[in-house]
Amino acid sequence: MLTIRQFSKSYKGGKKAVHNLSLTVEKGDIYGFIGHNGAGKTTTIRAVVGVLDFEEGEIEIDGISMKKDPLACKSRIAYIPDNPDLYDHLTGIQYLGFIGDLFNVSRKDRELLIAKYGGAFQLTPHLGDLISGYSHGMKQKLAIISALIHKPKLLVLDEPFVGLDPKAAHTLKTIMAEVCSEGSAIFFSTHVLDTAEKLCNKIAIIKEGRLIAGGKTEDVKGENSLEEVFMELIDHD
């Protein structure tokens, strides 16, 4: 579903943010992307979703090159950044309608899915309110719903659990498992190692822009906990 081949991205001035990164996310995968602050996670994610331009390497979504056909790629992706700034001047339902229109979601599908996910995240009663009045967590929930209503093949999430209350975090985990069982894939960054260990079937660890470990979760962590492996790799590798 997502193939990253020898992707590199340099900052202005020459310093490499990501260096020669390759990984593959397959159908049904929940792929965790782990690294300390400034390791290059967000840079990689932004390139994957077509927000960040890049020169070196190749990124393919469902076999389509992001460089050659970005629109076809974007129509298969849903992206939620780490701090979703949504249009404050719209109401929740207007925003969902806007995203539905951009992704060409049918009237029937959007009614069904908004009702489903709005109910799951207990946001439906607030959908008529302006987003400017939403809390951080409510905005995060709205961004998640907007990502789910167009049934993406690849869900790319940057720190999706930040700001969510425990119930919403649990709901999100359940939904993540559900969408992957239906054939989609999820690629997400997180600092919550416990969650990554339990939720992900594959994990990649990035340090200073380089992939230092990657593959099936049980292969990466072996007999240890993910936290122990992560600390070991970050401190000594």
Partner: peptide
């Protein structure tokens, strides 16, 4: 800056349009 919460929203028929 405070936007007052409207009435509790209940799902209604939605419209679709072009991008």
């Amino acid at each position: 800056s405070t936007s007052r919460a409207g009435r509790k929203y209940t799902m209604q028929p939605l419209k679709a349009s072009t991008a």
